[in-house]
Write a protein that binds this DNA or RNA. Structure first.
Lengths: 193, 193
DNA sequence: CTATATTTGGAACGATTATTCCAAACAATA
DNA sequence: TATTGTTTGGAATAATCGTTCCAAATATAG
């Protein structure tokens, strides 16, 4: 039987993801990745394929992590409007507590690669769809329970919420200030009436 | 007297900017730039310094161009609320007409370099401030003329508008669809009452 | 026409890029 | 313990990176 793998795959993904998040895809070299993960070149290639494959793994790993964290933060909130507000308060909280101002890997990747990398393009499109549907569900709930008016369609409001999210992920990098982000959330969520 | 420069500096900047907008800073090589501009390496270095200097020139060139285009599009609109709405309609129009889905150079650069490049960081911070102040002026006007309520401060609304703008510049890359962008604008600007 | 000053093209540079390769290390089975 | 199959580290690769350098080209001034 083969020698077993000595490293924890998730630990490696976590460190690689942090690196990509900080320096971007093109700004991160395989040398950086070996140093950050502690793995040698061959181990990295053997376990994750080439740089692009590793990056795609990081993207899905990051996506799952973010989605899980958000679920944990708001899943027990019954009121859909309160759930939406809590989600954005949670987001601002995470941004300020991380302190790095690195933004979101998926948003950053959209800006860096969406127009030149087909695989990335498909990923970010799917991701957009997933978030839009999640928000749409929440808004639909809110309208059915009479928490907010039916002036706009659930989809339209969901898209606005998505846009507010990605905006915040850029804004945190150009002006990582609590008042700035709070102002954005306060006004953006005032449409939920 | 010296031999005069044979190329038009603005034409070169325009082509270099288009390249950076499409492929990002790290994704664009000096070789790409020589091919796109038609200039040789030495001419490029001689006239614009190194890659980073050329990039900063492109950033300010792009900034001036965008600001000028926006001014031209809305400066003759007396009503501040109509002006804001026209600005975002103009933006969606530009996005759809360009068809490239490349987003905004400054937003993309924020995502790619803001946390690792001090000079870029200062630039995007200044840019954020400029746009915030412009929007703040418009909102202040609107409130003074009674076009919208004073529920929120002009700054808070301006920050929401800024956030909506950068969001749109990402969203256009993840889902370049007219209905999608129109929904965002429609809901986001519904706070102007 | 000559001299001058600057640009220009292209070769050349060392550093870094992503990737491959191979022998040595090693854990699990037989 | 011997064998097997895989991982591992590090050297090696070819390509590309940003940058420099220099001789040739060229427009102006004298």
């Amino acid at each position: 039987m083969p020698k077993e793998v000595l490293f924890d795959e998730e630990t490696v993904l976590k460190k690689a993801t942090a690196l990509f998040l900080n320096k971007g895809y093109n700004g991160t070299s395989m040398d950086d990745l070996t140093k950050a993960t502690g793995l040698s070149r061959s181990s990295l290639y053997n376990s994750f394929g080439d740089k692009h494959s590793l990056f795609m793994r990081c993207l899905t790993y990051y996506q799952a992590g973010e989605h899980g964290a958000l679920s944990d933060a708001v899943s027990n909130i019954a009121s859909p409007v309160k759930r939406i507000k809590a989600a954005f308060r949670y987001l601002v909280d995470v941004i300020l507590k991380s302190g790095t101002g690195n933004g979101c890997l998926i948003v950053n990747t959209t800006a860096e690669l969406a127009t030149v990398d087909k695989e990335v393009c498909e990923f970010v499109f799917r991701n957009t769809d997933i978030i839009e549907h999640l928000f749409t569900q929440w808004v639909k709930e809110a309208q059915q329970q009479g928490e907010i008016s039916k002036t706009f369609t659930p989809t339209a409001i969901a898209r606005h919420l998505f846009n507010t999210y990605v905006g915040l992920r850029i804004s945190e990098q150009s002006n990582p200030d609590k008042k700035f982000l709070d102002d954005i959330v306060k006004v953006a969520l005032s449409v939920l009436v």
